[in-house]
Design a protein around this nucleic acid. Structure first.
Lengths: 252, 252
DNA sequence: CGGTGTCTTGAATACCATCAAGTCTTGTGG
DNA sequence: CCACAAGACTTGATGGTATTCAAGACACCG
């Protein structure tokens, strides 16, 4: 299968995630679009190599300290960047949603400092770093978009540092959920009245992201439910009392 | 005072920090050097505006949410990026040493998401963002250096997330000290046999950086001293038992 | 059908925060 | 130069939050 064919197959196989693709970082970066357009107008050679991969839930997408010249972008599904310590405990650095670059650092550096793990089934696309670099140099207007992605990524890291350093378990969990809701909202993936969204995270994912134990996460979520703030069932989360929930999260 | 004169004055006023300047990010980025060289060869116009500022300890260098077109780089002294919450508690995101860009995000975005505070007296230099951007575009080979600074910054954020999420107070404090020692070492600012360095941090700085309380920091440091791991006196820190200290930090 | 993964709940414990009192240093204005 | 105030650090007592340990319910899957 040559590159053009791969590109086209990917472009045509995406209807269930059209919305996600519009919100997609890569689309914003003109990478997928550029690749698709090149593939369509078969006359000229494809300049950006890309390929689509599908990975089942719980599988590792990207291993720590591996060298890769592939830069992955999530097309659909949820994934997480994870650091594992020698004693087996884990810290999730960020959740990756449809359209997210796995890490902007990978645009420049082949060695990630964490592994990336699929939470749901994940479809992702990879670009060759060298192609990407060349593409960026030829289109300097795209730098603003890259730097925007970078700044957002850094902003979320900084927020997480503050949350882990200075907030209680209730706040951390509520903020995590609200942040995810906001990111999903931007992708058109949150229903309103009631405010409901897909929520494939297991409690241990929440624990690993908030620096808590699964046991305590369970207790806090039960408390939230008892207070009528949220409902969780069937891998779907509803925020019943947004104002109250934001108050718990200390987001004013 | 015109721009050339300012540049030259700065270049000639730096003997006490020559070592720091060699390790300086800006020097690596060729910014200070470029500015100095331009200033020296008065024939052509200086293309990168810069100015030097001096700020006493405890003063704020850069306020949150201000808009600045200035990109600051620390020339000498210690500073910290700090987030303050509404209840008054604080989280230090990173310590800034001689040669550090205050934040690589500021290269692209005028609005920092934290404030920057001088810990000691600080001398820093600011560049105009627009000049800097132009300079970078004209010298694409510098991108690697920017991206390297970028990646290192992100790596440290990620480390801090793991430390705050998954490590005990002892580990956090020991790791903070070892990380600082390593960064100072790269700048030639650590003496060996005994391993001693300047250490202007107050215990409340350590507390704000590790997500602990000053009281608890005091107790942990006392414990470290009782165990012969470190000595602190007169704004100077000695690591007496490096191997033991690294063991406490779980750095293998 | 056993096995595995997920979640819940309760009891005991550990870690760190909070409160409080006191020492010592640093800085400042009289 | 002294007196006083503010900041920095220490130490002990007490309390709260989250962890650890343990047991059981439930769903899902090969």
């Amino acid at each position: 299968m040559n590159v053009q064919a791969k590109g086209r197959a990917a472009a045509e196989a995406s209807p269930p995630n059209q919305l996600a693709c519009v919100a997609c970082t890569a689309y914003e970066l003109n990478l997928c679009r550029a690749a698709a357009e090149r593939a369509r107008s078969c006359g000229e050679p494809v300049q950006i190599d890309q390929s689509v991969h599908i990975v089942p839930a719980r599988r590792i997408i990207y291993r720590e300290h591996d060298m890769h010249d592939a830069v992955p972008i999530i097309c659909s599904g949820w994934a997480a960047s994870v650091v594992t310590l020698s004693d087996g405990s884990r810290q999730i650095l960020s959740f990756l949603l449809a359209g997210d670059l796995v890490s902007t650092a990978l645009l420049f550096e082949p060695r990630p400092n964490c592994l990336v793990e699929a939470i749901t089934d994940v479809r992702y696309r990879t670009f060759k770093r060298s192609d990407l670099k060349g593409f960026l140099l030829r289109h300097p207007d795209l730098f603003d978009k890259v730097s925007k992605a970078w700044i957002e990524e850094k902003g979320r890291s900084d927020q997480l540092i503050v949350d882990l350093g200075r907030r209680t378990a209730d706040e951390r969990i509520a903020r995590l959920i609200l942040n995810l809701a906001e990111r999903l909202g931007r992708r058109g993936m949150v229903q309103t009245e009631p405010m409901e969204m897909e929520f494939p995270l297991r409690q241990h994912h929440i624990a690993d992201a908030t620096g808590l134990t699964p046991v305590h996460v369970s207790k806090v979520l039960s408390e939230f439910r008892r207070n009528g703030l949220i409902k969780i069932s069937d891998r779907s989360l509803t925020i019943c009392d947004l104002a109250g929930f934001r108050r718990v999260a200390h987001m004013r």
